[in-house]
Amino acid sequence: MTKSPLRHLSRIPPIWMILIACVAFFSVFADSFFAIGNFTNILIQTSTIGLIALGMTVVMINGNIDLSVGAVVALAASLAVGLQADLGIVPAVLVGLGAGVALGFLNGMVVWKTGVDAFIVTLGAMMGVRGLVFLYTGEQSFFSMNFAYADFGMSSIAGVPTLAWVFLALTVIMHVVMTRTTHGRNAYAVGGNREAAENAGIRVGRHMVANFMLVGFFAALAGITLSTQMGASTPNLGTNYELWVITAVVLGGTKLTGGVGTILGTLGGVLTIGVLRNGMNLMQVPAFYVLVVMGAILIAVLLVDARVNRRVAGEVKL
């Protein structure tokens, strides 16, 4: 086995090349882009999508998907803000996180026990959980009366915002989990060949439920950090987040069919979206163009990937 540095280089997810190109581009053409203050800005702006993406990556490596994350964001935020007057901040936050984990458990159990495709199960949950949010909030926005809550969202440690630390720390932890632990390696086995994983004695059902709980936790955490930034929650919070998150994860090289993907790739995908938004904003390009550019990049990445793969595989024309 040869371990040349080149071989290592080829394992860097291709999205990082695009990310570096974007950073270079905006450094030259957008004033005040290349600054520490702006980079921490980007980190905070992307941390919401980024946190959910960490969980989504694992679920997608499993060959599943979770469309309900946007609604879970709203539910966790509403619970954490709405309950803190009565319970205090920490218990309210715990209830919010618990709700996310519980819904993840529910999604996972339904996927496991009924055998209905995760896309369908979580599509239903996406609507249903949003209904729960409206039911709980009575369609009202909640505002945090405790300044400590919003202060946390604005705080920083060693010059870097606390929320950015949280995101980075969890990214590192998830990277280690996916590359070094049996649970992480089993995730690839389950997604790569589910029947094989089952036959090899991996308890596939339980494994998948754990990962749905993980993405539920991350979505809830994202909702709570988002609400600390705003000092409030709205019932429509997180609408369309599932699409942004999936975009980021796919940009990072995770395959919808399962078995393939890395946390580092997802980080690259999340940051690329963040840099594009931030940089175009600094260049005073209207926000709509970001949508077009995002869509184009997503499809372009897919095209390049397919071209490379097909040349290697030498498939028949279909």
Binding site: P286, F288, V290, L291, M294, G295, L298
Partner: peptide, 13 residues
């Protein structure tokens, strides 16, 4: 999904 985003942008533009 990419088209969803791109067309949304086009509409706004």
């Amino acid at each position: 999904l990419g088209m969803l985003s791109a067309i949304q942008g086009l509409t706004l533009i």
